[in-house]
Design a protein around this nucleic acid. Sequence first.
DNA 1: GTCTATAAGGAGATAGAC
DNA 2: GTCTATCTCCTTATAGAC
Lengths: 201, 201
Amino acid sequence: MSILPRLSFKNQAFKLRESAILDAATAVLSQKGYDLMTMDDVAGAVGISKPSLYKHFKSKEELVGEALIRLLDGALDYVAALDPSHGPMQKLSSLLEWALRVRLEGGLPFLPSTSPHVREMLIRNVKYMLRIMKLNRQLEALVKQAQQDGLLSRDLPTDVILYSYYARTCDPAVEYLQKYSKMASDDIVRHMLKVTFEGFH
Amino acid sequence: MSILPRLSFKNQAFKLRESAILDAATAVLSQKGYDLMTMDDVAGAVGISKPSLYKHFKSKEELVGEALIRLLDGALDYVAALDPSHGPMQKLSSLLEWALRVRLEGGLPFLPSTSPHVREMLIRNVKYMLRIMKLNRQLEALVKQAQQDGLLSRDLPTDVILYSYYARTCDPAVEYLQKYSKMASDDIVRHMLKVTFEGFH
DNA sequence: GTCTATAAGGAGATAGAC
DNA sequence: GTCTATCTCCTTATAGAC
């Protein structure tokens, strides 16, 4: 497409490195969380120096924001690719399963942090907020539809179900089952889905 | 009791100040989390200087450990005071309600952090671990009994129920409902209990 | 025991050579 | 664009006067 293939090449290499940086940031972030993740960690994991890192992302906040945006894009893509013939419950269950598997494979949880600093930082991030709001609209619609169909409790406010649904994507029980019970990923996912929708009964 | 009332007085004042420090640490901790809480924050909240703070607690880790130990002692006292005529389900529900109310009133959640640093610090803390293990034994017994009685699902491993129960005590949905839905504390507690035991259906 | 002042070290961000 | 070396600020923790 471009008249300048050399530039295109450079651009491709640049994008590749950027992607590698985001992979590294994602891995470090999922292990240590925002506050304990250092830019040295990320640079070291990619195998570049810190100033090179800053050529790609002008601050720690921007780097983390981009990593989370990529995660949300994955979720939005997943939702868009869901079988339209499925009902709202199947879709909600399917997305939660996807989010849990992403985490179990070393990725990030949605709602990555309850830390006020991180939350405030993300609220200031327009690109991030656009995606969050888009995802939220779609999920809210699914929950409301499921409630109308009588598949989800109509006694519970939609907000309660929606926020609790988000909370399940970052439920610490997942890590505990993985770490202390040595449970296989498939079993963790299965049990978490059951607990989410059916509770303990 | 003491032959030296003056010493006893001093001791009482010392204990009082210690308690005030723990109150302040609890408040800051619940707002900012461990990593972002500074000793200056705590000293400022109590109205003393940082070196005075260090006369009471020799490190940040010890201070936070003691705050969490006090929380666990509260939980253990609560469990010990539960009506013995109640069944395991009532006891589990009652304790979860207590934990949620503590949080809603500005206290700390159990499982205060999934941060590896904090977790490791607490695992090294013998006093803390003794209480955690005691509480865990009692809760595990309640869950197992409820499962035997057919009140909790026997399809779910005990671990899944137990870890998910812990997770509900620090469920971020609570903060979201408080912050964004402006929901009253009583309603939050009621809905969270329902979601925990009955799921979304 | 309480304070003022400060040491020691970590981490985000950058200057400037190549 | 990449690196080495450095700046600057913040935070834990303490020395030493009162």
